[in-house]
Design a protein around this nucleic acid. Structure first.
Length: 250
DNA sequence: AACCCGTGCAACCGCGTTTGG
DNA sequence: GCCAAACGCGGTTGCACGGGT
């Protein structure tokens, strides 16, 4: 389908936002919400397209945005989550309170990727690539803009199914994970909702080995084995997925 | 002091998905 | 069920800024 032009570039402003525009947008959203981004700029008297307003709000003006440098815990979480999820920035952002997908994407490309590349030259690991084909859960559950790393970890403890289980029929390319397991199967397979709900339920019910926050990301990062355990957990999950996938074809 | 270059961030673009008529 | 509009996401670009020469 041909996507609608984001804005009929006639008379609509582009480029950096001014403080006045920011104030106008914030005031309008606080008063009326943002149920319809398309008409919002007209109602607010902004010479911007709805897409631009939405982006500005989500990435900059939202009250729960946390600004400033990423903590080492956050960076570690991003690395871990990216290893598991690939470039699903919005899903990763949903795990990091106050951080936007755009911000995380920028940090990944400008800092973390380089760091990993330099450190993985010896180990020869590469981050998995995937093609996003499902929208992620909105990060609207983010509430507290407090900037302590603990809150970030707390949010990591949020039920994983909030984001993961909603990715129905997600098409994962798990090349790197499969390589790690020695699997020679194809690089892509389908994981559906039932898989996520079942496996995540298993992980929650199983004694303490589930997706508990602190031992999942960050908090226990001092322990060298924690990340390995985490990866093992996910590798196991994906292996199970492969089994389920093959079973489903019988 | 002037210039160049690398980096980081904000914003834009294009496309896939979802929703509503 | 079909189609168009709207939404949301990830990739990419452009610009400002700081450090080095």
């Amino acid at each position: 389908m041909v996507s609608a032009p984001c804005c009929e570039k006639m008379g609509l402003k582009r480029g950096p936002w001014t403080a006045e525009e920011d104030m106008t947008l914030v005031a309008h959203i606080e008063q009326h919400g943002h149920s319809n981004w398309r008409v919002l700029p007209k109602q607010a008297g902004l010479l911007r397209c709805g897409k631009s307003c939405r982006l500005r709000w989500i990435n900059y003006l939202r009250p729960d945005i946390k600004r400033g440098n990423f903590t080492s815990e956050e960076e570690e979480a991003i690395i871990q989550l990216h290893a598991m999820l690939g470039n699903r920035w919005s899903t990763i952002a949903a795990r990091l309170p106050g951080r936007t997908d755009n911000e995380i994407k920028n940090v990944w490309h400008t800092q973390l990727k380089k760091r990993l590349q330099s450190s993985s030259k010896s180990s020869g690991q590469a981050a998995p690539k995937r093609k996003a084909n499902k929208p992620a859960v909105a990060a609207s559950t983010l509430e507290d803009p407090t900037s302590d790393p603990v809150s970030a970890e707390q949010s990591l403890a949020m039920s994983p199914e909030q984001s993961l289980s909603t990715s129905s029929a997600t098409d994962y390319s798990m090349a790197s994970s499969l390589e790690n397991t020695g699997s020679s199967s194809s690089e892509e397979f389908q994981i559906d909702d039932s898989f996520w709900s079942e496996t995540l339920a298993m992980s929650v019910n199983s004694s303490g080995s589930g997706m508990e926050t602190s031992d999942t990301f960050g908090a226990d990062s001092a322990s060298p084995s924690s990340s390995n355990n985490e990866m093992d957990f996910w590798v196991t999950l994906f292996m199970q997925a492969g089994d389920m996938h093959s079973l489903s074809q019988i």
